[in-house]
Amino acid sequence: MQRDLPLVRMANISKWFGAVQALNNVSIEVRHKEVLGLLGDNGAGKSTLIKILAGVFPPDEGEIYFNEEPVKFSSPKEARARGIETVHQELSLVNIMTISRNFFLGREPTRRIGSISLLDKKKMDEECSRVIGEVGIRVRSPNEYVSILSGGERQAISIGRAMYFGAKLLILDEPMTALSVKETRKVIEHIEEARESGASVIFITHNVYHVYPVADRFVMLNKGVKTGEFGKEEHEAEEIIEMVASSEGVL
């Protein structure tokens, strides 16, 4: 696999919600083992863009290429099957279910007894406990309800789950909303681990300081239009903040 070919390329994506144009001819690419920071103010279209990539809904115009192969995702399941794992802004866990049931949701391991296949609870609990340990959360059991976890612990589990299922592209939509400073640092560690294990990451945030330490490149959106794209070496964090705030961009 050639390093300089992008892992994912979204070309000329447009999306309308009724009369609102959420995205206007946006193109982005994510290279192998890179962390792309996707920046922009409220309503810029960041979530819409990555939801299209995650198969939540299709674009009205534009194409998606995965390893330069054109793909069309008609459901999140298809995107997951390609190795695109998303930790959504609204969180990716069901609070009133246990950690292990959440962990394997949609991909539950089963064992066959005769002609019926039952959940492999033992495997679910063991694997889940292992990942919980790896991401450094202290819970008594994978059968605890997600609702008792803190925001940071939930994000850690979501990221751990994505990596467990072999994510090639990890999409994080504002993973640090409502997290403490310490938890924020933890999440950054998890992102670095994800990249080291070979994944590419799209990291959405308002807060440039959150993404600056880990990002390789940045894309800026404003009101559905791409207003900037540059490598970390080109701008200091303060300059980027300035650009997002004044939304003038550099294109």
């Binding site: 939540v56 999140p76 959504h88 969180l91 866990l93 069901v94 009133i96 279910m97 949701l105 949609g106």
Partner: peptide, 15 residues
């Protein structure tokens, strides 16, 4: 459970 618990999450997990 997931559908009743939080259908958006269930859907995004492929249910």
């Amino acid at each position: 459970f997931a559908t009743g618990g939080r259908k958006e999450v269930a859907r995004s997990m492929g249910v």
